[in-house]
Structures are given as C-alpha cells and as structure tokens.
C-alpha cells in the first residue's frame, strides 16, 4: 500500500467512527426512552395521576407532584418573564458602552454558569429564612426565577438584536420616543424569539430538583397546594424520592413519573422549536 492509500483508509475509518459517535448518543437515548416506557407506561392510569403520595407503592400517585410542578411553572413565569425581558431590553436598547454595563454583561454570563444547587443555597438563606417564606411554592418559584433569569436575558437580547436598525429608525423618524419605539416596534417584532427563549428556560426550570431540595421542598406532601405560600413537591423531587428507595415497585412508579415529566419537557421544547421555525419563516427582513 502506498502512503496515500493508507491516508485514504484512515480517512474512511474516521468517517465511520464519526457516524458511530454521532449515533451512539442517540442510540443510548433511544434505549433509555424505550426502557423507561417499558417499565413505566403500564403504571400510568387515572388513579396514578389523581392519587396522593403513599407509603405503599401501588397506591401512590403523582397528583401533588404535577400540581406542584404546574404551580411552579406559572409562578416562575410570572416572576422571571417581566424581570428578564426588562433587563434584556435595558441592556440591548438603553445601555451605553460604559464600564458598569460591561460589568453587567460579564456578571450575567457568570450567573449563567453558577450551578443550580448554589441558587438553592441563595434561596434557602434569602427567601426561606430572611423573608420567612419557608419551603413554600413562592420561595421555590423565586429561586428558580433567579436561576433562569440569565437565560431569559440572553435570549431576549438575541431576539431584540435581530430586529433591524431600520425599523427603529423608521419609528424614531415619525417622532416616536425610545420607549414608544421599543414597545410598539421592537418588542412585537422580537416577541417570537423572546417567547422561544422563555419557554426553553421554563423547560429547564421544570426539570430542576436540586435547588428545590435545598430550599426544603418535601417529597411527601399529603395535599395539593392552594396558595403560593403552601408547601409543595414537584415531579423531579418525587422521581428522586422514588428512585432512592430500594423496592422495585417504587422504581416502576419513578419510571411512570419520568414519562409524565418528559412529556411536559418535550412539549415545552416542541412549542419553542415550532415558534422559532414559524418566526424564521414569517419575517424575512
């Protein structure tokens, strides 16, 4: 074999290795989903969805968990959405190139890299102890809001950046003020992108267990919360709890709850991807 033959062979080999690597992750994912579905789908029925937790695996349900997850989803949206979008608008539309704004940007990038469990410690001290909210839904939602704030800010900025300068010029030239321009032109034009970012951030929040465990969300809550100040559990914590038990039946429960959690996560991501594609199709500047 000549040198160039060997090179070509190596090239071919790497090509195959590339395909292998690309698919190994996907294959593992497929095996995993298959395994979960096989183990858990038989357990999902009306009783499972509408029963309170129980010490007996066969009687335990996820009512409090999914209701808690829903509460957290809504409260987190209410807190993080206005805050994150406002901050994104400020940084993209108002902030001038100054040292303090430069610092703001670095700081946000840093926050995005702080482990979620650290946010849990922050929430524990500030919301649970200092503000005396206890292990309540509100404390959990506030903690998760801080966690996803950097994501929302970054995606809001991206979406706003995509609105062309000419739209702003057109608005200013008609005598519109800065805020009128932002409110009437920039935000509507970037809304699809902002929404996509928020939904992706929420799908992250829905799957979080660690920070909520740290602030004291409990695995066993024998009632569904009726106000933001009630104690709560969420699906990931319920799954964690069941996974850590030795009995096989609880693992089945965990698998069933995972199916529900994955449905919620994939649905949120699906909506986000759909919105992004629609946005890209709709507006060609």
């Amino acid at each position: 074999m000549t040198n160039s033959d060997i090179n070509r062979l190596k090239d071919k080999a790497f090509h195959i290795f590339g395909i292998f690597c690309t698919f190994i992750g996907l294959v593992v994912l497929a095996i995993f989903l298959f395994d979960i579905v096989v183990e858990g789908v038989g357990r999902i029925n009306w009783d499972f969805l509408t029963s309170l937790p129980s010490r007996r695996a066969s009687r335990a349900g996820i009512l409090t968990a999914w209701v808690g997850t829903l509460w957290i989803l809504v409260l987190t949206t209410l807190i993080a959405f206005p805050l994150g979008v406002s901050a994104g608008v400020y940084l993209e539309e108002y902030a001038k190139k100054s040292r303090i704004n430069n610092f703001l940007e670095i700081n946000i990038a840093n926050l995005a890299g702080v482990p979620s469990i650290i946010y849990g410690l922050l929430g524990l001290e500030i919301f649970v102890r200092q503000m005396r909210l206890g292990g309540s839904l509100l404390a959990g939602a506030l903690t998760l809001s801080l966690l996803i704030l950097p994501i929302i800010i970054v995606t809001t900025r991206e979406a706003i950046k995509a609105v062309p300068r000419s739209i702003r010029d057109g608005s200013y030239a008609l005598g519109a003020s800065k805020w009128q321009t932002v409110w009437n032109q920039v935000l509507p034009a970037s809304f699809g992108g902002i929404l996509t970012g928020i939904i992706l951030a929420l799908s992250r929040a829905v799957g979080e267990a660690a920070p909520l465990i740290v602030i004291g969300a409990l695995a066993y809550v024998p009632f569904t919360p009726s106000s933001p100040l009630d104690e709560f559990t969420v699906l990931p914590i319920q799954i964690f709890n069941w996974t850590s038990r030795p009995q096989e039946e609880f693992l089945t429960n965990a698998a069933a709850a995972i199916i529900i959690l994955l449905i919620i996560t994939f649905m949120l991501n699906g909506i986000a991807v759909y919105l992004r594609n629609r946005q890209q199709k709709k507006i060609k500047w």
Binding site: P164, S166, I167, D169, G170, S171, Y172, A173, L174, G175, A176, S177, Q185, P188, A189, I283
Partner: peptide, 21 residues
C-alpha cells in the same frame, strides 16, 4: 423636543423599512 421636531420633519430611508404590521 425631538419628538415635536420629527413631527415636522418627515424622513424616508434608503431601504424601504415598513414595520412588520
């Protein structure tokens, strides 16, 4: 006031820039 000024002085740009409305 810049907004008052611009009510009196209209502007048309190089590239058509209709609002996406």
């Amino acid at each position: 006031r810049v907004d008052e000024l611009r009510k009196n002085v209209g502007m048309v740009f190089q590239k058509p820039n209709p609002f996406p409305k």
